[in-house]
Design a protein around this nucleic acid. Structure first.
Lengths: 233, 233
DNA sequence: GGAACAATTTGCGCTGGCGCAAACTCAAGA
DNA sequence: TCTTGAGTTTGCGCCAGCGCAAATTGTTCC
């Protein structure tokens, strides 16, 4: 097995503050894998054996209820760490991670976490910063679910996707992985029907353009207005 | 200022695995304070200066939206650590912490976190375990908000309160701090009216007894049935 | 003890958004 | 080219739960 090249991670926020040598050292313990579109990197409830960094692609983190309903917890973008059960003292993954497109992923055995975090404190700190951000984002989502109408929630979700994973094109900000109405519904706690109706309306108004598993935000500003609509209540 | 007594924390899960001497050592840097009912330990958006352990009482963690709506993120019980912005690399508190009853709290300056977590790894690990649990609970709440009806959510909320902070009495499990219909509404994303109607119905059915700022669960089993009701969908 | 206030209960009407069903459209493979 | 199937759109009816309002009950502080 050839050693992995430092260039894989040197540009990632997560590994900033480490010397080139340290970056190489961390990489020595990593294993690289590819996952085809729609395959699982890990499954909810499964014994957690590794933690991961996404090198290329997009990953959907999904929780499934006992009766089979799915909720999308978040999307993971390039450069992010995920599946950090080890860092939080958990022995199983609380959700499944599914490749939304073909992905390249680095994996480290969980057993190495204490050692790595100890030897490279800035790496540990960056990881916990990520965890903190996610906790806050998740709480924000609870607040949104509690206080906002469906239209606002969907608008917020699109804006978040556009910001985090949007690719600027001449016709607007395009979400650069396939995302269905059903996916958006599972991110916002509604149905694909309602999402479809909203997107249709917004397309009529020139706020977005959308197609099959594709959304492009043309007028983010008006979407913000919708998202923050303080009409009711 | 007299040194704080180790007995304050020796029985707490958070400090298990530390020797008596280590416990005393940690305590040397702590400051103890009392907070009267309904006063704030810290405020949302405020610069985070300390992290805390609740010694006595109950604390409500609240997020307020720009337009003034409140959502209760969680309740903190005795022995829990909270306000751990430092451990997650955040500089402000993402929510306010309000004493639900008169409280006693230990506080450590944030600046000490790296040092303490480094010197007492089991303490750091326990803290991150707590963070992990909270992240998972928060995500569970998103799932509930996305997939359950109001009745199920309120039932779940009561069960959680009963489990976490319930006091067994001869007439059932009593939630041992004052909690209003409004509070329950802010935990479940509904209105105090709907909560009131549900509690009334449940009281008629003998599942609970409730009064002013008080709920006692008499028949947890039937509440579980309501919470897991897989009727619809 | 009583006034003032806070929390709760309950009725009523309305509606956002869901469930269901059917039609339609696009993409990929045979 | 045609078929097949997945993703999407849209119409329609309905109801859970909200907003509003008023009555009621329990607490607290003069």
């Amino acid at each position: 097995m050839a050693a992995l090249d430092r260039s894989l991670i040197s540009r990632l926020l997560l590994f900033q503050g480490l010397t080139p040598d340290e970056q190489s050292e961390i990489l020595r313990d990593a294993r690289s894998s590819r996952y085809a579109k729609e395959t699982a990197i890990f499954e909810q409830e499964a014994e957690a054996h590794s933690f991961f960094v996404l090198i290329a692609g997009h990953i959907r983190v999904v929780r499934t209820t006992p009766d089979g309903q799915q909720v999308i917890a978040r999307y993971i973008s390039e450069g992010e760490i995920f599946g950090v059960a080890a860092a939080l003292g958990r022995t199983t993954y609380p959700a499944s991670a599914i490749a939304a497109v073909d992905c390249v992923v680095l994996a480290w055995p969980n057993a190495l976490w204490p050692d790595l975090a100890g030897r490279f404190p800035v790496f540990g700190a960056a990881t916990y910063r990520t965890v903190g951000t996610r906790l806050q984002e998740t709480q924000t989502r609870v607040v949104e679910m509690s206080t906002e109408q469906v239209e606002q929630r969907v608008a917020h979700a699109l804006l978040r996707l556009a910001n985090q994973t949007g690719r600027k094109t001449d016709s607007g900000i395009e979400i650069d992985f396939p995302i269905s109405r059903q996916d958006i519904a599972e991110m916002t706690g509604t149905t694909l029907h309602t999402v479809s109706r909203l997107l249709s309306k917004w397309e009529d108004n020139g706020i977005i353009v959308s197609g099959r598993q594709k959304v492009t935000v043309k007028d983010a500003h008006r979407l913000v207005v919708l998202a923050e609509n303080r009409d009711k209540r």
